Computed example of a mutant assay.
Amino acid sequence: METIQQLLNEILDIDFIQGIISNPRTKDGILKMKVRPVEMKDGLYFQCESFTKTQAFHENLKAEEAAERLANSMSEFRQMQLSTKTMNYTVLISKKGKVTIQKKRQQGEVRAAELSHNRSKRYILQEGIAVPFLQDLGVMTAEGKIVKSRFDKFRQINRFLEFIEDILPQLDKGRELTILDFGCGKSYLTFAMYYYLHELKKYDIRVVGLDLKKDVIEHCSRLAEKYGYEKLTFLVGDIADYEGVQEVDMVVTLHACDTATDYALAKAIGWNAKVILSVPCCQHELNGQIQAKELAPIMDYGLLKERFAALVTDGLRAKYLEASGYDTQVLEFIDMEHTPKNILLRAVKTGKADQEAGEAVKQCEAFLGADPTLGKLLGFDRE
């Protein structure tokens, strides 16, 4: 990691804005790291923040120490994004350890980093900057202040945008990108995604939101027109039947109920989507299929059976994605409208199918006596 440490030694100074290390090689331990400059009594330090599934750890290091710490951490990750006042850097590491560094000059004026040590959490959508769709949601006032009773919604929207921030290197900024949002509902996250990618990050995107509720779609269409979001379209339709595109860049499916998630994932894979973000819900299918006698002590209790079946369903979905050529993570997503915490599946296309994952799925399904919809849609025969 000498090349990475050399880069960090060059840019960790007062002009450094932030760094994000993501896409871990394992699903245990540290899942993400962030670094930013902080001004302390004895000079400039760099605050390194490490996140596990349940905890966050902080340490303040001098520039050389921070460069060494971050460079060594890259042995456990696949990508790093770095920003200074003049440049953006993307560091990618292949499975064989090859390091690729891409750099691009900043466009326009860039705000200097906030150097306060005891600053409040820095959200992607910040308080004080009025955002039209947040005002209509009742999350923000016309002056840009967050409504106290809606702060959980504000936090959830920002958390969702953080998941997108991590995969920006996978999205081509030199052409129009197509993004589909299945089961978009009231579409507050759809609007957030469009605002973040198009208005803040200046990506050329075309977003299609699909839902079965005609009145909801009509309302969202009116809002898109009101905001001047010309490439944000809402349609009434079923996930399983939608045929409006040949290929897509990203598919988002949030709370598509039960097997509707499976149809959305199968569609995404068939369209060679580079990125898939899915928050499943109401995973009922396997609850009625699991027959393993060895699990009878658990299955005798309806609540435990329901939760077990839901976890198994999403675990198998993740493995099906890996078997279909996607690097897949199972992440925790804060959702105040359904349950306190949900699972989010984030998949990035590698093009290299994991045959071991496919075999593991078959063995697991055989043991459970289950035959999930996604496997059938993808043509994974269990013999």
Rank of each mutant, 00 (worst) to 15 (best):
M250R: 01
E337S: 11
E332V: 07
K213I: 13
K41S: 15
T350P: 03
R36E: 10
E337M: 11
D15K: 12
K34P: 00
F308C: 13
L210M: 14
G185I: 01
Y203R: 03
H284R: 10
Y227D: 02
D314N: 13
D371Y: 12
E285G: 04
I290S: 01
R36G: 06
M1I: 05
E243C: 06
K231D: 15
G302A: 14
S187A: 15
A323T: 06
D15V: 02
D152Y: 02
I269L: 05
R222F: 09
K53E: 13
G29A: 03
P280Q: 04
Q156N: 11
C184M: 08
P132G: 08
G237V: 06
D211L: 03
E247V: 07
G325H: 04
D28T: 14
P132M: 06
L254E: 00
R317L: 11
L197P: 01
G19P: 00
D249G: 01
G43W: 04
Q102F: 14
K41V: 13
D204H: 07
A260F: 00
R122H: 08
N9L: 14
D152K: 07
F163D: 05
Y196F: 14
Y196R: 08
I14A: 12
M336G: 06
I205H: 02
V279H: 01
Q47L: 15
F191T: 10
C220H: 00
A71M: 12
D314K: 06
G315L: 10
E76N: 13
K202P: 02
D300L: 12
L137T: 05
K32I: 01
T328P: 00
A260R: 00
Q47C: 12
F77Y: 09
T100N: 12
D335W: 02
K231H: 14
Q81H: 08
P297S: 09
E365H: 07
G358D: 04
Y242V: 03
D300T: 14
L115Y: 14
I93A: 09
L31W: 00
D238A: 13
R36N: 12
A366Y: 11
K376L: 08
T84M: 11
H198E: 15
A309S: 15
R222M: 14
Y195R: 04
I14E: 15
N342C: 05
N60M: 12
R150Y: 06
L70R: 01
G237S: 07
K202R: 15
L44G: 02
Q246V: 07
Q170N: 07
D166M: 09
K96F: 10
I20M: 04
G183L: 02
R307W: 05
L223G: 01
G209T: 13
Y326M: 09
V248D: 00
G209D: 13
G237D: 04
K341G: 03
F51W: 03
L223S: 06
V35K: 00
I343W: 00
R111F: 06
Q55I: 07
L304Y: 15
A360M: 09
F151G: 08
T373D: 09
K349E: 10
N23R: 06
I17M: 04
I217T: 03
G351I: 11
E10N: 13
R382E: 05
L82E: 09
C257L: 08
E285P: 04
Q18S: 13
L316D: 00
